[in-house]
């Protein structure tokens, strides 16, 4: 395995900055949007083999999305990218902690981004550097049933999201990603506060009905 890993590593370390850029580009150009199974395979390759090609694929898919998520949640562009970089570092370092019995890859990376964002906002306010410890790594006996449940949850949430009206999906996105209070969202959409609140409630209610209908 190391025979496979080493060339990429030393190739990068030993090339001049200009050639290095070309190499990085090559590492990242790798096909279309990956699906859930492919994503967990990539994570496994990072965990087991420190596979940099797999990592480059994950990076090119997730880093721009995590950055976008962090910007939407109110961080300035440079801070958003900085934290996204941290998130992707955690993905590399903690790949072996990824537990497909708990969540899908996108969900796992979302929770890492969420936690680092919380740490960041508290750190900048309180100035205590509480080190982000790895999420729990308690050992659970592997079971196909649990894996199936996680896959079902991921699929049903996506299906439910897909069958919301565009307006409802927009309200869900807005209230999920933005740290704005409903009153600010109301101002932004020039809607009365009560309308925003009831739309959020309706959208969540519909999401719940859809999710329960599927299980």
């Amino acid at each position: 395995m190391n025979a496979f890993l080493e060339p990429a590593r030393s190739e990068i370390a030993n090339t001049s900055p200009s050639r290095r850029g070309a190499l990085v580009t090559r590492l990242m150009q790798d096909g279309a949007t990956p699906d859930g199974g492919e994503l967990s395979d990539l994570i496994r390759r990072v965990a087991d083999d420190q596979d940099r090609h797999a990592y480059a694929r994950l990076y090119s898919y997730f880093a721009p999305r995590v950055t976008s998520f962090l910007r939407k949640s109110g961080l300035p562009a440079n801070a958003a990218e900085e934290i996204a970089q941290e998130v992707m570092l955690v993905v590399w370092r903690k790949a072996s902690y990824f537990d497909p019995e708990k969540a899908g890859v996108a969900t796992w990376i979302f929770t890492i981004a969420r936690n680092l964002r919380i740490d960041h906002s508290r750190r900048s306010r309180v100035a205590t550097a509480a080190e982000a410890t790895p999420v729990d790594n308690e050992e659970v006996a592997p079971s196909g049933e649990v894996l199936l449940l996680v896959a079902e949850r991921e699929a049903s949430v996506r299906a439910a999201l897909g069958s919301l009206s565009e307006e409802q999906a927009a309200i869900v996105r807005l209230s999920f990603f933005s740290d704005k209070a409903h009153s600010e969202i109301a101002q932004e959409l020039s809607l009365p506060l009560g309308t925003v609140k009831s739309r959020v409630r309706l959208a969540l209610g519909r999401l719940r009905t859809l999710l329960e209908g599927q299980s």
Binding site: F62, R65, V66, F69, A103, G104, V105, A106, T107, W108, I109, F110, T111, A113, R114, R153, E154, V157, R158, L161, V172, R173, F176, F177, L207
Partner: peptide
């Protein structure tokens, strides 16, 4: 959280 993953 899965919703967060899907939205991401």
């Amino acid at each position: 959280e899965a919703l967060g993953g899907a939205l991401l």
